[in-house]
Design a protein around this nucleic acid. Structure first.
Lengths: 207, 207, 207, 207
DNA sequence: AATGAATGAGGGTTCATTCAT
DNA sequence: CATGAATGAACCCTCATTCAT
């Protein structure tokens, strides 16, 4: 019994090591150049081990995407949970999170876009990304709904949520394309100005 | 003389056919899965010809990126040239172009993001993309500068241009991720609302 | 522990099989026509294995040259070790070895000349061949030095050693060019006559 | 008529240019790496032209070998023709020729050995080389026969001729393997010593 | 659970050769 | 006679995957 637990502990451990190695390597190589050898090497394990744990390169990549997706979601959720029920603070929390030093690194963005670029050909990637987006979408829509109500204006919560999310993704891409001039503070400012221009009463004062 | 012209005509023709084939294939395969065989086959030519015209796969891809980049720029320029000097109409022209049936197809977007995802590892891709962006950036900054002046408000032309561009890229990505619900009209609407909220006096009436 | 030994045994074994196959094939094909497929096939192994063990064709060839060079040197050394300190017998041993059935086969000579022909363009080949030659040269020089002393004549040990080595290489080439009339005994006789004419007192009687 | 002559003149000219280019390229590349493109480029002509003139890469190489073989033979014959009927002077002439600045260049030697290395697999090469050797052999055998007679000793003219030729080939190879220390004068000296030791009466004085 | 030698399909690339101009 | 774009066979090599240990 104990042994079995130990074993499954080890297994989990190896899985994690391999996924971490995948991410690390993906951040400097792109999916094409990533080899199973890179992954196992980076995890300090041996060649065939990846197939032992993940059956397939494809499954490894899917699990990796799932991993970073979950990682993102946890961080996302944490950023809004601590804000009680203030939609203003929730939105600010989301922006702060999306451009935090933990989330918005060039390495992680690169990994994301690696997967994005394959969305069209890999249904599994598509689904995971879509799920994340739908969740993000529904949360922000609700927030914007509240803000629209409070601001007492006529705006489509859907459109504004879509625009908000698009803006953030576009700024992430910017960080990929233009790492030298990109900076987190400016990106956040652009987001805040987006909100401010739509909800002047509620956001004029801050920032 | 005639002969030579005919020859170089043929050569150009083959080049074009190969690049077209590359784009077509890239839109359904991703760089990894794209084979030289696919490309030559798709162009109705034989195996080794790609290496004859482009030296190797890498150069083929670079030329392909350059091609779609130029194609985009021509379309972009055309969209603002016919608007005389009205910044409002210029901006509208840009949006209309960016989400036109010609530019904003899922196929083309897929190709763009295929290259974006490799930016970090391929300096050649990086440079081409950056050039395009800088151009786009400088043009839109100037437009926004005029709009800011006319609107008589305090806004950073740089930030608003960056936000604008990011918004568009994010919406392009949205079309990749969510092709079923995405529609060009909504995307344009989101863009117009972005402008309207920043320049209410100049854009309130239209749309 | 045992496992590891077995594994490395197997690895060595495969290496050897591949090099042997390379030699066998080189003796009937020449470097150009030699394919990796030939090599693996001849070793009873599969395609990619050669690259696994030797990185690429070039390294395989270098290791092969190193192998036949070592093989030659071992044989060479054995031929002089058992002769105590008699320079006469040493020289005879060298000649016997150089034209023995084991060393002077048309197959092996062909392999040697295959490599010789590339010396000028492949520094790695050059070095291995040069090392072998320098060793041969230094050993024979010493032998000739002793013979010169004993014979009490005035001769350059360097020149005679160079001439001796050249003669042998030339006869090897002869065996390649004229396999029908070439015979080991005649070759050896020519060598002995070379020596006899230079050291008549010491070699007159033998042979 | 005139035109036809002009044409065949041109043809001969092109042939020559292509063979020269082959030799030049062979001296820095080895047969493996030599491409038809190299050859035509080097001759200042266009790609397909080699096949037009020589049908085949193989035939080009054969013609090239024939060319250098003839070139050698002309030089060889010239070196003995001007010596009237003195076998001593003939032999000296041959040696002088074989290690002349014109014949014994590292480039030319490299070309020779390139062909030697393929002798075993290419009957056409074999034949050309053999013919040259037989001629050389018969001439030197006759010379040595005269010398043996004059010297009044018991020696096999065949063996001595074979040894002589082998010595020269071995020294050529030496120049390939050890271009830094090799020098023409030393090589000739070694040859002369070979003769001197066999025909002391006739060669003691010279050199 | 882990190893790493071995497999073998499939890719990119080279290059002799052809042929319309 | 000459050109050079085009062909396509064949090669080297990579790499995901397997499996005996």
């Amino acid at each position: 019994m104990k042994q079995r637990n130990l074993r499954s502990e080890n297994k989990k451990n190896s899985n994690l090591k391999l996924i971490s190695s995948t991410i690390k390597n993906l951040s400097k190589k792109g999916i094409n150049e990533l080899t199973m050898h890179d992954v196992s090497q980076g995890a300090g394990l041996s060649q065939g081990i990846v197939n032992f744990h993940f059956k397939n390169k494809e499954f490894l990549l899917i699990e990796t995407l799932r991993f970073i997706s979950n990682e993102y979601l946890h961080s996302f959720q944490k950023s809004i949970l601590k804000t009680e029920n203030d939609p203003r603070r929730k939105l600010i929390g989301i922006i702060e999170n999306d451009f935090s030093k933990k989330i918005c690194t060039r390495e992680k963005i690169a990994v994301w876009f690696t997967f994005f670029s394959e969305i069209k050909y890999k249904p599994a990637y598509h689904q995971i990304c879509k799920e994340r987006d739908l969740y993000y979408q529904s949360i922000t829509e609700n927030i914007f709904a509240e803000l629209i109500k409070k601001e007492n204006i006529k705006l489509s919560k859907k459109n504004i949520a879509k625009g908000f999310q698009a803006l953030i993704m576009g700024l992430w891409l910017d960080q990929l394309e233009d790492p030298d001039t990109f900076n987190r503070i400016q990106a956040k400012k652009i987001c805040f100005e987006f909100i401010k221009s739509n909800f002047p009463k509620q956001f004029k004062r801050i920032i």
